[in-house]
């Protein structure tokens, strides 16, 4: 579905992303993780079109999209969220999302279709669908949901979720993770989840790609990655126990539920 090959980004003499390659399968939730400064955000922005690659390619459904402008990447079928929510505060909640539906569809849908897609996206993330709700009333968690709704309203095939959960408490983190899983289950959307806190992510993702100093240092199933010596060394540090616990919890719940999704 999405294939990143030899992706490289240099800022002057500094190489932020170096020869990064990975594949994202259709319907998969891929965790793109790494400590601060590991290059995951740069990689994310290279895919989303916010940054132009120095070298390498990003192919989406066989088509090269590396270097396309963000609005064209969106229209091609890859939507993104922002780590720090960026709502359009002068517009109503529903208008925020309807705007995304309309322009995400390349201005080729009517107004009523745009509004109905917006209502659908808001309902999916459990935000109010009435036309009166303003941005002011949404809390931190609500704004995160708005980010998702706006991205989903563009009807993407791939969702790039920049979900730094740092500002949320534990139950909110759980809800955010559940939300992504819910979106995948409901819509079959492929998700790339960028995150630096490994714990809660491990419960939901199918596979992980771990970056450090701009390079891929591990890739694979969460339980395998979490026990990888290099990953534990450079990244997890004192957090290792917590991650192992999350992986164990997932294993238990999956056995209980009788298999994976």
């Amino acid at each position: 579905m999405l294939s990143v090959d030899g992706l490289t980004k240099r800022f002057g003499g500094f190489t932020a992303v170096n020869q990064v390659s990975f594949e994202v399968g259709e319907g998969e939730i891929l965790g793109l993780i790494g400590p601060n400064g590991s290059g995951k955000s740069t990689t994310f922005n290279l895919i989303a079109g916010t940054l132009t690659p120095t070298a390498g390619s990003v192919r989406f459904q066989g088509r090269e999209i590396g270097g396309l402008k963000p609005n064209l990447v969106c229209r091609a079928g890859i939507a993104r969220t922002f780590q720090i929510p960026r709502p359009f505060t002068r517009l109503k909640l529903l208008e925020n999302v309807a705007l995304a539906a309309y322009y995400g569809a390349g201005e080729r849908i009517g107004r009523s279709e745009a509004w109905s897609r917006a209502e659908d996206a808001l309902a999916l993330v459990q935000l109010p669908v009435d036309g009166e709700t303003t941005i002011d009333g949404l809390g931190a968690a609500g704004l995160k949901k708005l980010e998702l709704a706006r991205a989903l309203a563009t009807r993407p095939r791939v969702l790039l979720a920049d979900e730094s959960l740092g500002g949320l408490d534990e139950s909110e983190m759980d809800q955010a993770a559940d939300m992504l899983e819910h979106i995948r289950r409901q819509r079959g959307i492929t998700i790339v989840w960028v995150e630096h806190i490994m714990g809660v992510l491990m419960r939901v993702v199918d596979r992980c790609v771990v970056l450090d100093h701009g390079e891929v240092i591990a890739e694979g199933l969460p339980q395998v990655v979490a026990s990888d010596r290099k990953v534990v060394e450079v990244y997890l540090g004192g957090d290792a126990g917590e991650v192992q616990a999350q992986v164990a919890a997932r294993a238990r719940s999956e056995t209980g539920a009788g298999g994976t999704s």
Partner: peptide, 12 residues
């Protein structure tokens, strides 16, 4: 208000 966010939802 948010140029990057506008572009990210397909606005030229």
């Amino acid at each position: 208000e948010q140029e990057d966010a506008a572009a990210s939802v397909g606005v030229d």
